[in-house]
Nucleic acid binder design. Sequence first.
DNA 1: TAGAAGCAGATTTTT
DNA 2: TCTGCTTCTA
Length: 679
Amino acid sequence: MKNILETLNPEQADAAKTIDGPLLILAGAGSGKTKTITTRLAYMIENGIFPSSILTLTFTNKAASEMRQRAFSLIGESLDHLPLLSTFHKFGLIFLKHYMNRLGRDNSFVIIDTDDKKKILKAFETNLPISLVANEISKYKNNLIEPEEAISSALMPNYKLIATAYKKYELYLKDNNLVDFDDLLALPYKILDNDNELAKTISQRYRYIMVDEYQDTNDLQFKLLQKLCTSHNNICVVGDDDQSIYGWRGANIKNILDFDKNFKDAKVVKLTKNYRSTSKILKAANSLIQFNRNRMDKKLDSTKDEGKNIEIFGSGDEKEESYRVSRKIKSLIDSGTNPNDIAILYRINALSRSIEEGLNKEAIPYKMVGGLKFYERAEIKDIISYLRLIQNPNDDFSLKRVINRPKRSIGKATVDKLYSLAFQKNCSVYKLIKDENKLLEDYLPKKAFKSLNDFIKKLKNLAKKESIFELIDDVEETFKIKEYYSLLPDSLEKVANIDEFYGLFRDFSMQHADATLEEFLNDITLQSDQDQIDDKNISVMSIHAAKGLEFEHLFVIGVEEGFFPLLGDGTDLEEERRLGYVAITRAKKELTISHVESRFYKGRRAHLLKSRFISEAGLSSGVLKLKSNSNYKKGDLVKHKIFGIGRVVNVGRVKKDYKLTINFGGTIKDIISTFVARV
DNA sequence: TAGAAGCAGATTTTT
DNA sequence: TCTGCTTCTA
């Protein structure tokens, strides 16, 4: 038992041994957070705490499974009862599967994702930006404001519209027995809030609570945690106020800053030894974050050598920036660095394009993390919609998505007719087709009518299957989704995605022999992209996406005022700075920060100053001054000794020289301007 | 019905 | 500049 604590430093061990009462573990970046809490979990079990009375909540599936793995490898042998490690949302799902009836609703609900939510809202035609409506509704739900209250308290006309959409949306969800991400937290809270006996029961079942990334919890999650602590106060939260970067999404940094006020007699353990970065990198991070006022006082101590200097790239424009970054990466890889240890980070996704071009030119394989998520891809959502329809044919929403995909001559006009008729009759489209078939025959174009009935029949046949085993093969055989996508642009990638999904489905159906389709559907909606960072690729992603990761060689690009910190009406400069802190602390050995003098963005060229964060981090930068203006411009004809005559397609820079991208009769080459002559 | 052309809008996004 | 959505026309 002693030996599992042996690998911990004194502070970590102190945290791991503190079992009873509220505990805040302030875990700085790279301070061994996961190690500490997984050891704590193992320690509790070894000390006789009933495993299934321990609940550990995380934000991502990835974090949950990583912690599960590490904790179990410490405990060793398999246990009869297992501690529950789950995301907040998954926990909400499990809870609702048991107690949804307390709200008079059926527990066979289906979870919808953000995309689905927006599609539903769109149908209400508020004429407001749909993401605004979706976000505001999210806020209402997270603040536990009911639609009626939202409507009566709305002052501005737009908010009346949003609140009304909220009301319609809630009705729609109820009618179709759908649940959104916010509901997975809000509904369990409501149920527990209405029934104190139940709250007691639940909190007695989970007598020990652990929460990961506590700085990212929002008000609702905080309230839910309070409910879970109704009959005890054994709550251990782990987090770092300096890494709170989701404020814009409702995360409340006060939760962590005020933990000791909210939970009486809380013990606070600070983990400040950093095992990740060189001391130069750490110094920069510490120096930067010190400019924030709203934070807990602490400073990370290095355990590593000084290391290399942090390099600052000051470039003329984004072309030069991507060129220099790519060249440096190229030389790292050429000298034996594992591409997997290299990453490029940026504040906004729009910067990925220029860097991708640079990487492509150098033939450096990269992996974009973030981007479009697997389950959000059109082809995957199509299949999911088919499955949802099989599970519940009254799902008008999914029906709309695939009613004419692959094309089956049911056009927009027909779809509009169907949906407005169903609305009039106050029934689902499926029910309408079933019950009013005669009426529809006269009402719809012949071809569409026939095709529609054929489509419904196929769905019904698939719904008859009692086992989900092989279901996916039947779906493909019936609807030929793969065939359809194989004829569309980017078919290779899309077909590969479809195959991947089919594989996932088959895996699931084999692992869960008696599982229902509904269980599969809810499971995948809560699944985000598990990291598929593979060996041969460098990683390219937003700073948000990089949270929790670490890389030997790190590049942060676009470090300019206005881009990073991103300045706008809603800017929280401290949060931007924390983002800078998160970025820097991802680096283990080598950090390169890049800024440009001008960047093309949103259709115009913006002139930029280097970010204040560079000087705040105690770094300085010199922009390389060029020898002279280029004599060349796009379209000029030039001659090269070996390649002959070509046309300039682009003018960029390399250090103090100009780099010309020249098209020599179809072959594109990058050449330093001094090696060519004007024709 | 389906492809083409025209037009607004463009932070970050664990679930 | 580029994307995704609406509107237009064969």
